[in-house]
Amino acid sequence: MIAIGNDHTGYALKKAIIEYLEERNIAYKDFGCGDITSSDYPEYAHEVGKAIQNKECELGILICGTGIGISIAANKMKGIRAALCHDCFSAEATRLHNDANVLALGARVVGIGHAIKIVDTFLNTDFSQNERHIRRIQMLEE
């Protein structure tokens, strides 16, 4: 299951991503926010992070205006590896090399069509299981 969360600036993009997930029968849980009323991105980063930490969800998608603040908030949580991606190459590389479990997107940075391609790449790329990448991820957890 995919955890998804956003602040007010990410609301429209979240709706488009949910439509993509539903069209592909990909299970998700929406952690908000539910409209364009001003909200605080750390709240949603923490909700998505907790869902991954407690294994309620396998991966997460977070959206704010730039993707920066919400990724910083998520990365403060143990076991969360949130990657801010503005292109498909980065989305693929972060899954292959970093086993990132959260994709962060900037709704004011990427358009909906491009964001959907980034999400698709992130969700359809598996971790490489390469020894050097495993070692490096373990170093992050220390």
Rank of each mutant, 00 (worst) to 15 (best):
G113T: 12
K29Q: 12
Y44P: 07
E58N: 11
N130W: 05
Y28N: 01
I112M: 04
G5K: 02
F89P: 10
G34D: 10
L84C: 11
P42Y: 00
M77S: 04
T121K: 12
V110I: 15
A12N: 15
I18T: 03
H97Q: 07
I72R: 03
R136N: 07
A93G: 10
C64K: 14
P42K: 02
I137S: 05
Q53E: 10
D120F: 02
A74T: 10
D35R: 09
F127K: 07
G49H: 07
I118L: 06
S39I: 00
M1T: 13
K29S: 02
I137K: 13
K50M: 10
G10R: 00
K50T: 11
I52T: 11
N75I: 13
K76Q: 14
G106D: 04
Y44I: 07
V119F: 04
Y41G: 01
C85V: 11
I72Y: 03
A3N: 01
A45R: 08
Q53F: 02
M77E: 09
Y44T: 04
F127R: 09
A27W: 00
A16W: 01
Q53G: 09
L96C: 08
A27H: 03
F31L: 06
A74V: 15
G34Q: 06
N6M: 01
I70C: 08
K55Q: 15
I52H: 03
I116R: 14
S39E: 01
L13F: 03
A27Q: 13
N124I: 01
G60K: 00
K15T: 07
A93Q: 15
Q129M: 11
D120S: 08
V48H: 07
I137M: 08
E92D: 15
I72G: 11
R135Q: 11
G10M: 06
R95K: 12
G60T: 02
Q129F: 04
K14L: 02
S38H: 09
G67W: 06
F122M: 06
N124S: 08
Q53I: 12
Y20T: 03
H114D: 14
I137Y: 05
T37H: 10
D40V: 03
I118N: 06
G60M: 00
C88A: 14
M1L: 09
R95S: 08
A93H: 11
I4A: 02
Q53R: 12
S39K: 03
T9I: 05
R24W: 00
G67R: 13
Y41N: 02
G67E: 13
I17T: 04
Q138H: 08
I137N: 09
D30N: 10
A107G: 15
E92M: 15
L62Y: 07
D7Q: 05
K14D: 04
G5L: 00
L59Q: 11
L13Y: 04
E19Y: 01
C64Q: 13
G32Y: 00
I116Q: 13
G106Q: 09
T66V: 10
G106L: 06
M139T: 08
V48S: 03
T37N: 13
I36C: 09
K15F: 00
K117Y: 01
E58W: 01
A45P: 11
